[in-house]
Amino acid sequence: VQTVGQWLESIGLPQYENHLMANGFDNVQFMGSNVMEDQDLLEIGILNSGHRQRILQAIQLL
């Protein structure tokens, strides 16, 4: 089972590990259960829309 940090590294966005972990997104399986939306990522400080889309697309593959 991948950690959130390993998963972010695999999609090329390791800089957001602290954003996700500090806001309770600390379990890759949980994130894959379709609980995260674009607005959630924006609210936790991921401002780059391309990065948000990449995260959301990768979540669909979990």
Rank of each mutant, 00 (worst) to 15 (best):
I55Q: 00
F30E: 15
E17N: 05
D38L: 01
G24Q: 04
I55R: 02
S10I: 06
Q15I: 03
G50E: 03
V28R: 05
L56Y: 06
S33P: 07
L62G: 05
Q57I: 06
L8D: 00
L41Q: 01
N23M: 12
Q6V: 05
S33C: 10
G12C: 04
G32R: 15
N23D: 04
H51W: 01
S33E: 15
Q2I: 15
M31C: 10
V28S: 06
Y16A: 03
M36A: 09
G32D: 12
L41R: 00
V35A: 14
F25I: 12
G45F: 00
P14G: 09
I46N: 01
Y16T: 00
N27D: 13
Y16R: 00
M36N: 09
Q29F: 10
E43D: 14
G12Q: 05
S10N: 09
H51S: 02
L62V: 11
Q57K: 13
F30G: 15
F25K: 04
G32T: 15
S10R: 08
M21E: 07
V35F: 12
G50C: 10
Q15G: 03
E17T: 13
N18T: 11
V4S: 04
Q60A: 15
L56S: 05
R54L: 07
Y16G: 02
D26W: 08
F25G: 03
Q39Y: 07
G24C: 04
I59G: 06
L42T: 09
H19W: 05
R52A: 00
Q15N: 00
N18R: 14
G5N: 06
L42Y: 10
E17S: 07
N48S: 07
N34S: 15
S10M: 10
V35D: 15
E37Y: 09
T3Q: 06
R54T: 09
E37F: 08
M21P: 03
S33L: 11
S10W: 05
L47Q: 15
Q53R: 13
P14N: 06
G32H: 13
W7Y: 03
V35L: 13
I59A: 14
H51C: 01
D38C: 04
N48K: 07
A22S: 13
E43I: 05
G12Y: 03
G45L: 00
M36L: 13
E17F: 06
N34A: 13
A22Q: 13
M36K: 14
M31R: 06
G5P: 08
L61V: 13
L56W: 07
I59M: 13
Q53I: 10
F30W: 09
N48G: 02
V35G: 15
V1M: 06
H19T: 15
M31S: 07
L61R: 14
D40C: 08
H19L: 14
L47G: 11
D38H: 07
I59N: 06
L41M: 04
N27F: 08
H19K: 14
E9V: 07
V4L: 12
L8K: 00
L8E: 04
D26R: 12
Q29H: 12
L41Y: 00
N23R: 11
L41E: 01
N27H: 07
S33D: 15
G45Q: 02
Q6T: 09
Q2P: 12
V35E: 10
I11S: 02
N34L: 14
D38K: 02
R52H: 02
Y16I: 01
G45R: 03
E17R: 08
D40N: 08
S10C: 07
Q53N: 13
F30H: 15
P14K: 10
L8R: 01
G5M: 08
P14H: 06
Q29G: 13
D40I: 08
R54I: 09
V28L: 15
E43L: 08
H19G: 04
Q15F: 04
V28K: 05
M21R: 07
S49R: 12
E37H: 12
I55P: 01
I11E: 00
N34V: 14
G45V: 03
L42N: 05
G24M: 03
G12T: 02
L61Q: 15
L42A: 11
A22L: 10
S49D: 10
P14E: 09
E17Y: 08
Q29T: 12
E17G: 05
E43Y: 07
M36G: 06
E43R: 15
V28M: 14
V4Y: 00
N48P: 05
L8F: 03
G24I: 02
N18Q: 15
F25S: 05
G5A: 15
Q39R: 14
F25T: 04
L61S: 14
Q2F: 12
I46C: 03
A22F: 07
E17Q: 08
E37K: 15
M21A: 09
S33H: 12
F25Q: 04
A58Q: 08
V35R: 13
R54Y: 01
A58E: 14
D38F: 01
N34K: 14
I11Y: 01
V35N: 12
D40S: 09
R52Y: 00
H19V: 15
S49P: 13
I55E: 01
H19A: 14
Q6E: 13
G32M: 14
L20V: 00
L13R: 01
M36C: 12
V28Y: 06
Y16K: 00
I59Y: 10
Y16F: 00
L61N: 07
